[in-house]
Amino acid sequence: MIDKQRRVPAAGAVVITAMLAVTGCAAKKNDSPNAANVEAVYSDQTRVGEVNQLKSIQEFCGSKPLKVALADGTGDNAWRKTARAEFEDEARKCSNLTVMPYSDAQNNPQKAISDIKALVAQGADAIVVFPDAGEALLPTLREAFKAGVAIVPWTANPGGTPGKDYTTFVGHNTINDGRTWARWTCAHLGDTGGNVLFLGGTPGNTQSTTEIKGVEEEFAANPACRNAKLLNEPGKPIDTNWNPAQTQRVVAGLLTKYPKIDAIISDSGDGSLGGLRAFEAANRKLPLWTANDLNGFACEWKKRSAQQPDYNIVTVSSRTWIVRLALRKAVAAKQGITDGEPEIINIPIYEDSFDKAKQPRCDPALPSNAILSAELGPEQLKSIYN
């Protein structure tokens, strides 16, 4: 078992207007009847567990030859590239698994639907899906499941019902992540408090919408947050597509709108690099910042912290390795083997610039995009981004 404990003037107004329009799309998805189902997943303690409960895929390979596939909603960032490498690495551990060609829907819901249908038509036995399109994918997931495919959405919950619409859902406890980030932020803002913004990913994705729920819960319940102000509209992440260039544009608009920003709660280390560039271009002091771990994010902290000692960061693991759990669940289901691993994983803090035992990890020999909490070796990490 790998130790994962150590393993984001007028022109600005245009950006803000566009950003809020996109955020509105996310709100519509989160207000749907399935929103309650999504949130209930993270509250069901029979499904939630810790990283030390995860197992080896060798227990679930079985004997039947299987075709397995990864269907991605978008593949244009470091996180998705790393997750793809983890999926393929995990599949190689079972000699009876054949990995089908990777599908990237390029953030197009209709293409995501077509990609899954095509994989089913090509004989896929097990498909792991990142459902960026949310509930729009449910009929397609259900159709594949009823056709006998073991289909496991991961990280972004599409709603629906496991065992009826798809095999199961696996992911990390996104509400817990939101609370972790908010707790750290409030503790280090101190009694003076300050203005806080939450940056999410693609419009309507349930990862970001449940993370902001955790942030809001912590702000409401934690006395240390009494003077901290979350500037987002209730329940609405600010969409960035988890893309550094778009995050830079969005944050540039936010800096125009808000003369004082004391903390950024982001769920992307990769996207956060663009946000940092926006602060630098505006000649603004860097705030407290949360994210998922990324080599470049840690290296930026090391580079800037000496000049800006108040700039501090915390990360949780980027948990690209959860795609391995999704594959194990899909393979076990198709082989008829019981997989008792938890489906929802509580992710611990990975780096904390305030904690001498968890200092941000910067490896200059690896690309900025490298995710050091991945279950991949240095050479594998280098090859991903070439």
Rank of each mutant, 00 (worst) to 15 (best):
K55A: 08
K55D: 04
S56T: 08
I57E: 03
Q58C: 03
Q58M: 09
E59G: 13
C61K: 07
G62I: 03
G62Q: 07
S63Y: 04
S63C: 00
K64Q: 15
P65N: 14
P65A: 14
L66T: 09
L66W: 11
K67R: 15
K67F: 01
V68W: 10
A69Q: 08
A69T: 01
A69C: 10
A71R: 05
D72C: 05
D72H: 06
G73K: 09
G73R: 09
T74K: 05
D76R: 06
N77F: 01
N77A: 05
A78P: 06
R80H: 09
T82L: 04
R84N: 07
R84G: 00
R84A: 12
A85I: 01
A85F: 07
E86C: 03
E88A: 08
E88N: 14
D89F: 08
D89G: 13
E90T: 13
E90H: 00
A91T: 07
A91D: 12
A91Y: 12
R92I: 09
K93N: 14
C94D: 11
S95P: 15
N96C: 13
N96G: 12
N96R: 11
N96L: 09
L97F: 12
T98L: 09
T98P: 09
T98H: 13
V99Q: 05
V99H: 10
M100Y: 08
Y102M: 11
S103K: 14
S103G: 06
S103V: 06
S103F: 05
A105C: 11
N107P: 00
N107L: 13
N107I: 05
N108W: 09
Q110H: 04
Q110L: 14
A112F: 10
A112I: 07
A112Q: 15
I113V: 15
S114A: 15
S114R: 11
S114F: 05
D115I: 08
K117R: 15
A118E: 13
A118M: 11
A118T: 15
L119N: 04
V120W: 12
A121I: 08
A124Q: 10
A124W: 10
A126Y: 09
A126W: 06
A126R: 04
A126G: 02
V128M: 11
V128Y: 10
V129I: 13
V129D: 10
F130T: 11
P131C: 03
G134C: 01
A136T: 12
A136L: 14
A136N: 10
L137Y: 00
L138Q: 02
L138H: 01
P139F: 10
P139T: 07
P139H: 07
P139K: 10
T140I: 07
T140N: 02
T140H: 04
L141A: 02
L141T: 01
L141C: 03
E143H: 06
E143T: 12
A144K: 13
F145V: 01
F145N: 12
F145A: 04
F145S: 05
V149S: 11
A150R: 04
I151F: 08
V152R: 09
P153E: 12
W154L: 08
W154A: 05
W154T: 03
W154V: 07
W154I: 02
T155I: 14
G159K: 07
G160F: 06
T161A: 06
T161G: 00
G163R: 06
K164G: 00
K164F: 00
D165W: 07
D165I: 00
D165M: 04
Y166R: 06
Y166W: 10
Y166L: 05
Y166T: 01
Y166S: 03
T167D: 04
T167F: 10
F169V: 03
V170N: 04
V170D: 08
G171H: 12
